[in-house]
């Protein structure tokens, strides 16, 4: 079996806990190549935690994750990441170009400096998100949408096969939103797999061909038209009470 026969992403029984509080329980999923998957769920459902746990950014307390049939460490160069925009300090003394260049660092490895080829790639990626004219700017002089484009360009510069994006549509202008959609479609057409954490339910149905509905545990996962129904939504959003009582019951059972 060639390595690429393995699915880009395979998650088995993933459990994550912060301090004493469990955040994700027993998540199981497989992402096929070329899928554009939206991760939806209410606030605090563990959407960001899921992708962070998959990439080893937060430690996992149970289960395992395989990327292209390998543990994360061995597949790291095939993974691209767009973190939440608020997660960084935009006053940091770097230019737009420097930030996008960070996308190349993972590939370069230790001790190697970026060369001309890397600089060309960075410029191409900036051009793709129409940010090339801003390459020399300090990052604090950008609008929210422009900041998001910079992060997208950085992910593109990673030249990966599997992308994780954490709320890329949050707080961006309509033009950037359209540009992101265009980019996602293009990536998908090239056979890349993309997981996007998304907050807005109405657009989720429109944008993604697969939906992963999450509320601390997996509510539903599959093609959008199958998953996106009232019953599942009720379970994920309206059914918060149910989940709480269920957990409480189980805790009682364990205590006895």
């Amino acid at each position: 079996m060639s390595p690429d026969a393995a699915p880009p992403l395979e998650v088995h029984d993933l459990t994550v806990a912060y301090h004493k509080r469990p955040v994700l329980y027993g998540i199981d999923m497989v992402a096929p190549a070329g899928a554009l998957i939206g991760v939806v769920g209410p606030n605090g459902a563990g959407k960001s935690t899921l992708i962070k746990a998959i990439m080893g950014v937060v430690p996992i307390s149970g289960g395992w994750v395989k990327l292209f049939g390998k543990p994360f460490r061995q597949a790291v160069n095939r993974v691209g990441y767009v973190p939440q925009r608020e997660s960084v300090d935009w006053d940091f003394p770097v230019s737009v170009f420097d930030v996008v260049m960070m996308g190349r660092y993972g590939r370069l490895g230790l001790f190697k400096r970026p060369g001309k080829a890397d600089r060309d790639i960075v410029r191409d990626c900036l051009d793709k998100v129409k940010m090339l004219p801003y390459a020399g700017r300090q990052i604090s002089n950008l609008s929210g949408g422009q900041q998001q484009r910079v992060f997208l360009a950085r992910a593109l510069a990673q030249e990966s096969d599997l992308y994780f994006m954490d709320e890329p549509f949050a707080g961006v202008d309509a033009a950037t939103e359209a540009a992101i959609i265009e980019l996602l479609t293009e990536l998908k057409a090239r056979g890349k797999t993309i997981l996007v954490v998304h907050h807005d339910l109405p657009t989720a149905q429109k944008y993604f061909d697969r939906i992963l509905m999450l509320n601390m545990r997996l509510v539903a996962y599959g093609p959008t038209e199958e998953v996106f129904n009232m019953e599942n939504l009720q379970k994920a959003y309206g059914g918060r009470l149910n989940i709480l009582t269920e957990v409480a019951e189980r805790e009682k059972a364990v205590a006895e």
Binding site: A17, K20, Y25, G26, S61, G62, E251, V254
Partner: peptide, 16 residues
């Protein structure tokens, strides 16, 4: 207390 709680969660996850 934290260590005990952690063990409980793991136990819970294993039995779930």
């Amino acid at each position: 207390a934290l260590a005990l709680a952690r063990r409980r969660i793991q136990h819970e996850a294993a039995t779930a």
